[in-house]
Amino acid sequence: MRIWLSQHARTLGMTLGKFFRSPVASLFNIGVIGVALALPAGFYVGLVNLQSLSQGLAAAPQLSLFLALDASRADIAQIEGRLKQHAQVHKFKYVPREQALADMKAGSGLGDVMSGLAQNPLPDAFVVDARDSTAQSLEKLREEINNWPKVAHVQLDAAWAKRLEAVLKLGQLAVLMLTTLLAFALVAITFNTIRLQILTRREEIEVAKLIGATDAFIRRPFLYFGALQGLAGGFAAWALIWAGIYLLNNGLADLSQLYGTTFQLHHLNPADSLGLLLFSAVLGWFGAWMSVGRHLSDADRR
């Protein structure tokens, strides 16, 4: 066991030495991997930020009930009674049509246009807070209320949040596709790097095999190299994203000050960062593994 460990430690040391012996080539390789990974990872960070933003906004979905224009006082009272008794309704607010018109005149800047209207085009309305805010139960409640008499239309105010969610899902799919493509690129880069290394070290491999090296012994330094290069590439990607967010946040600080709010992009959280590093290391290892498997058996047949 100790021998095994010391062999691995030695291989690790030798592999690190290899990086420092050709620093320019290593840096370029790591840079390419870093950029390739930073693209999907950066996109992912953007999505996560959007998601947390949308969650903050859509926390309390509301239903808006618009009554038919010919609803009488009695109808309104009856709906009010029903809402009071309904188990799903947490609380509600009645917005009479006159008030809605007044609000609109004050809020929208369309006051002049509004005062030109012969009659009030707006219906009476209720704004309802549901007890259970999952999308399914909200939808059920909406349909139920929609069937009540004199209810012209029920608007689920969370609809736009759902749309955003759908767009985010699409974004996630795009990230996944981008990740797959660039993961392939990473594997290909490692594959080629290792192929070159095997070619330049053909003699060493041949001699080592002749004097009793196992395949595992011969593979080990290449696999270490692949994994380390991947890890370094992952770290480069992480640093690129960190720097990108840092710069964007500086710009955002100015912008959000103008709007009187504070809005900051979040950095990658520790779990995601670790995932990024692991992912790239595993891909590097995989590329090296494929390359070694392929080219060592080539060397064998010679």
Binding site: E203, E204, E206, V207, K209, L210, I211, G212, A213, T214, D215
Partner: peptide, 17 residues
């Protein structure tokens, strides 16, 4: 590999690294 560990090999072309 384990068979080969029984041997010490001296090559005509040395095969040094």
């Amino acid at each position: 590999p384990f068979l080969r560990r029984n041997f010490g090999l001296v090559f005509q072309d040395h095969k040094l690294l």
